[in-house]
Design a protein around this nucleic acid. Structure first.
Length: 291
DNA sequence: CACCAGGCACCTA
DNA sequence: TAGGTGCATGGT
């Protein structure tokens, strides 16, 4: 991979396994929006970025090499060889062969653990557009103003301190629905116990998931998502409605319980469980498998 | 207009 | 331990 700076952009050449649409629409993130020109604009780690693929070049606009090296290289997991991950998955069975070819450009973003905690609490029994809206509203009201990009204002996801200033009613007003009390409870707990959840990245997977489920509003599925997307626990397998459908379609019986599907998958996919989950989720949701 | 969404907490048996 | 139900909100 080559990376060089030009006109407030960083241009990447010879990047394998990278497609913005696959990355941003595979369900792992909620703050990236598609523009009319096909590019995506989003906020992560307090920075506004626009990203676009043209031919075999990736254009990261509104940034520089310094931020690329300190933030975006890690955020997009560019140090990981996804060709190898996909090859390992492809050899497991024909379903993964198809799913990895379909979502060939997926990368699991290295997102902030705190942001994932609140975001996936909001995700429960919710729809992706509504999750995005609620997170946007919370950021707009309680997050730091970052500036304008192409005429639109952008805000960072609120820190625990910032979010703790919101009452339950104010959180509800951000379209969080019945999850308002979970967000309030979780934020209060983090503040009271001075608990830096981003440090959970240092825990082993089982402990990490167990610790996360102590928060109100965090059950098995939400904890798995936070662990996978915010804490780099790749040997876990979040089972949501779509993953349940695709697993039942391809691998297990209709009556298998969610915990058993999870255990089955982790046993089958091992350290690559989280990657398998993303390829399968994207494949199932885009094609409407099992719906 | 029912029905459902990247589930969870809570209740019952 | 396992299984059923209510839940805010808005799209189909």
């Amino acid at each position: 991979m080559k990376a060089y700076e030009k006109d407030n952009s960083v241009i990447l050449e010879e990047v394998a396994d990278f497609d913005p649409k696959h990355i941003f629409e595979c369900g792992q993130c909620f703050r990236w929006n598609k523009n009319e020109d096909g590019s995506f604009t989003g906020v992560a780690y307090g920075k506004i970025l626009n990203i676009k693929k043209e031919g075999n070049k990736i254009y990261l606009n509104n940034t520089n090499l310094e931020d690329f090296n300190s933030i975006w290289f890690n955020y997009f997991d560019l140090g990981t060889n996804y060709t190898q991950i996909k090859n390992n998955l492809k050899n497991m069975d024909d379903y993964l062969l198809k799913a990895t070819e379909f979502g060939w450009g997926i990368r699991i973003l290295r997102q902030n653990g705190w942001e994932m905690l609140i975001s996936f609490i909001i995700s429960s029994n919710n729809r992706i557009p509504m999750i995005q809206r609620a997170i946007e509203n919370l950021s707009k009201k309680y997050g730091k103003y970052l500036g304008e990009y192409k005429g639109k204002k952008y805000y960072a996801f609120p820190t625990p301190e910032e979010l703790s200033k919101a009452s339950q009613e104010e959180i509800r007003a951000c379209q969080t629905g019945f999850r308002d009390k979970y967000i309030k409870s979780t934020t209060d707990r983090v503040i009271e116990e001075n608990d830096d959840v981003t440090e959970y990245i240092n825990l082993d997977t089982q402990t990490c998931v167990k610790e996360l489920t102590k928060f109100n509003g965090v059950g098995p599925k939400v904890a798995d998502c936070i662990a996978l997307f915010g804490m780099r626990k790749y040997d876990t397998f979040p089972v949501d409605i779509w993953v349940k459908r695709v697993m039942q379609e391809f691998y297990v019986n209709e009556d298998m319980s969610l915990p058993k599907i999870r255990a089955y998958a982790i046993n089958k996919f091992g350290d690559l469980s989280g990657f398998a989950q993303q390829y399968l989720f994207y494949y199932a949701r885009e094609l409407g498998i099992g719906r």
